[in-house]
C-alpha cells in the first residue's frame, strides 16, 4: 500500500486544493510531539488509501504551518478539518479510531450528495 497523503509544510492550502479537485478534503493538524497524532497515523494512512477517489488527505504540522493552524483556529491536536469547495464542512478535535473517522467521512460524503 502506498500513501497518498500530502504533507503541507507552509501556510498555503494551494497544494491540497490543486490535488483534491472536487474531492472532499481532510486536513489533519498535528505536531511531532503529539502522542495521539502518532497513534492515529496508521488510521489516517488507511482512510487515505480506502477513500482515495473521494477524499484528499493532507497532514499539517501546526508548528511548521502556524499561520495556517491559526487561520483554522486550531487549539489542540489532532484537529481534523473536513473541507469542500473552499469551505469547512465539519471538524473533530481529538483522536479517532479508523471506524469513527470512516463514519465521519461517510456521513459528510452522504450529506454532500444530498445537497448536490
Amino acid at each position: 500500500m502506498t500513501s497518498s497523503i500530502l504533507s503541507i509544510d507552509g501556510n498555503s492550502l494551494d497544494p491540497i486544493d490543486a490535488a483534491a479537485g472536487d474531492r472532499l478534503q481532510l486536513l489533519v493538524f498535528g505536531a511531532t510531539w503529539c502522542g495521539p497524532c502518532k497513534a492515529m497515523a496508521p488510521a489516517i494512512d488507511d482512510v487515505a488509501d480506502s477513500y482515495a477517489g473521494r477524499v484528499a488527505v493532507a497532514k499539517i504540522d501546526i508548528e511548521a504551518s502556524s499561520a495556517l493552524a491559526d487561520s483554522f483556529g486550531v487549539r489542540g491536536v489532532p484537529t481534523l478539518v473536513l473541507r469542500h469547495g473552499g469551505q469547512e464542512v465539519d471538524r473533530h478535535v481529538g483522536m479517532l479510531t479508523r471506524t469513527r473517522l470512516s463514519l465521519l467521512l461517510d456521513d459528510t460524503l452522504a450529506r454532500g450528495q444530498a445537497l448536490a
Binding site: M1, A39, P42, A43, D45, D46, D49, S50, T97, R98, T99, R100
Partner: peptide, 23 residues
C-alpha cells in the same frame, strides 16, 4: 465495543488494525 470497532476491518487493508485492537 471499542475492541469491536478496531477489529471491524479486513486486515489486508488495515495497517492500523492490530495497533488499534491492541490499545
Amino acid at each position: 465495543g471499542r475492541v469491536a470497532e478496531a477489529a471491524a476491518w479486513p486486515l489486508a487493508t488495515a495497517r492500523a488494525g492490530l495497533v488499534e485492537l491492541l490499545h
